[in-house]
Amino acid sequence: MNTSPPPPSSTCLTMEEIHMQFGGVTALRNISYAIPRGIIQGVIGPNGAGKSTLFNCITGVLHPTMGRAVYEGVVLTGKPPHKIARLGLSRTFQHVALFSSMTVLENVMLGRHPKSKAGFWATGLRFPGMPGEEKDIRERALHFLNFVGLEREANHPAGSLPLGKQKILEVARALATEPKLLLLDEPAGGLNMRETENLGELIQEICGQGVTVMLVEHDMNLIMEISQRILVLHYGETLATGTPREIKDNPQVIEAYLGEG
């Protein structure tokens, strides 16, 4: 464990000069930012601004060329994604990444992985305690399905759900790991207006339960409505930060978006 100075007690995640280079292309340039605990943090920016890259740098999929991410005093950078997940970070994917031939319930049950223990021997030989753990996994998974309202589809193959429900299922699967920080990568992509509205309510409800949410989204209405703070990326750099109102009136942001067309 690196000995970084204890974070201000209100900070959940700190990005310290994260720099990501692919060959000659700089995807992120010295991103420094701190996310306070318990809020919905919006991240916006035109296509190719580096939003997904930033997510991947935080969750351990990519290793930043320089800089690091610190979560609750623990340095994330350098850890593999599954260890980061165990620390209490969970995520959804921009392009739906469900286990499509597994059932809806099984998908959420997989999310219980960090919260359960039985290995090959324990499951294969049915050690005492293992069936109880399985039962617990199933019950907790059903609880999260209920929470997002997918309980009726529990036994359908995940791949057979319409896109809108697949996106919600990804949220349920991520919630099943009981994260303290939830990273949502364009959860409203492909959703219609009503679905987006419901998603917004769901996200607020999640945040209301004390989970910090980091939300990458293209849907400006959604992000302006539910985030407390917004980070704007542009060509891999921080263009602006602030409350939705400040961002809305920021001339640089307006130009970046208009400039894009």
Binding site: P80, H82, S90, L98, F99, L110, H113, P114
Partner: peptide
């Protein structure tokens, strides 16, 4: 089975 279908997602869920 999750590894078979979506390795990155399985890893992100703590597997």
């Amino acid at each position: 089975r999750a590894i078979h279908e979506e390795e990155a997602a399985a890893e992100a869920m703590g597997v």
